[in-house]
Write a protein that binds this DNA or RNA. Structure first.
Lengths: 146, 146
DNA sequence: TACACTATTTATAAAGATTATAAAGTAAGA
DNA sequence: TCTTACTTTATAATCTTTATAAATAGTGTA
C-alpha cells in the first residue's frame, strides 16, 4: 500500500522531469510512511542517520518541489512551522457557475473543521460537505474576450 | 456599522479588564475598517503616521490580546506571515441527520480552501459552501437511552 | 483632581523558520 | 562513457515573531 503510493509518486516525479535523488527518495518514503504531518525539521532530523551530510535546505527545496508537483500539501496551522502531508485521494469539487464544469481538487485540512464544529455545537459529527464556486479558466477567458 | 463594531469591540475589551490605549484603539479601528486581512507588518506600517514611535512588538502583543479575547482571528495561509481578521458574524451550519435541527457555528479558516482551490484548478473562486452533518446532542441522548 | 498600582509601550536583542548563493557533486540521456 | 543541467551542500542572509527590561501611561480610588 505505502509501497504502491511511493512507486506512484516516483513515477509521477519522473513524468514531470524531476530527477530522483536518494534524498528525494528518502523524504518521499518518510512522508508516505508518516502517520503525522511532519515539519521540515522533523524530516531533516529523521533522515540525519541515513544522510549525515544532508542540508536543511535540501529538505526545504524538495518539499517545495513535491508541493509544486502536487505530491505533497503544505499545512499551516497556527504554530511556527509548516507541516507537510503526502496527498491522498480524498478530494473536493470546484464548480463553474457558467458552464457547470466540475474539477476535483485535494484539500487535507477539513478534519479540523469537523473537530471544531463538534466541539462548539455538541454534535457527533459524521461527515461534511464542501464545494467551491466560481468561474473556470475557459469561461473566464471567454468573458475576458467578451 | 463599523462604528458600532468598533464600539462593541472596545466595550468587550473593557469587560475583560484589558486597558484601552490609543495604540489598541487604532489597531482595532484599522482592523474593523480593513477590507483585506492585514499582516502585523501592514498594520504597523499603516499606523506609523499616527504613531511614529510605536514598536512592532506592540502590534504583535495587541493582536495576541485581541485573539485571546476572541475579537480577532489569526489566519495562516501558505505565505510567510499571519493575517488578522476582525471576527464578524459569518458562520456555517451543523445539521442533525435525525431531527433536522440546524446549529450555527463559526469557522474563520476556509478562505484558505478557496485560495488553494483557485490555485490548483485555475478557477476564479467566488465563494464556497460547507456544512457539517451528524447527530445533535438531544438525538444522541435519545439514541443512547433507546 | 491627584495618587498609586500595575499593565503597557518602547527599543533592542534574540530566537526560529525559511530562502538565497555559490561551489562541488551527481542523475540521466546520448 | 561523456556531457549537461539539475541538485546538494554549507553558509549566510532574510524575515517573522517573541523575549527582556526600563520607561510610560491607564484606571480605580481617596
Amino acid at each position: 500500500m505505502s509501497e504502491l503510493q511511493l512507486r506512484d509518486a516516483l513515477d509521477s516525479l519522473k513524468g514531470t522531469g524531476v530527477r530522483i535523488t536518494p534524498q528525494r527518495h528518502a523524504i518521499l518514503e518518510y512522508l508516505v510512511g508518516a502517520m503525522s504531518h511532519p515539519t521540515a525539521d522533523e524530516i531533516y532530523k529523521a533522515l540525519e542517520g541515513k544522510f549525515p551530510n544532508m542540508s536543511v535546505a535540501t529538505v526545504y527545496n524538495n518539499l517545495r518541489v513535491f508541493r509544486e508537483v502536487g505530491l505533497v500539501k503544505e499545512l499551516t496551522y497556527g504554530d511556527s512551522s509548516s507541516r507537510f502531508d503526502f496527498v491522498t485521494t480524498d478530494h473536493y469539487h470546484a464548480i463553474c457557475e457558467d458552464c457547470g464544469k466540475i474539477v476535483d481538487f485535494h484539500y487535507p485540512g477539513l478534519d479540523e473543521v469537523e473537530h471544531l464544529a463538534s466541539h462548539v455545537t455538541g454534535f457527533k459529527v459524521n461527515n461534511h460537505r464542501m464545494e467551491v464556486y466560481g468561474t473556470c479558466r475557459d469561461c473566464e477567458a471567454k468573458a475576458g474576450a467578451h
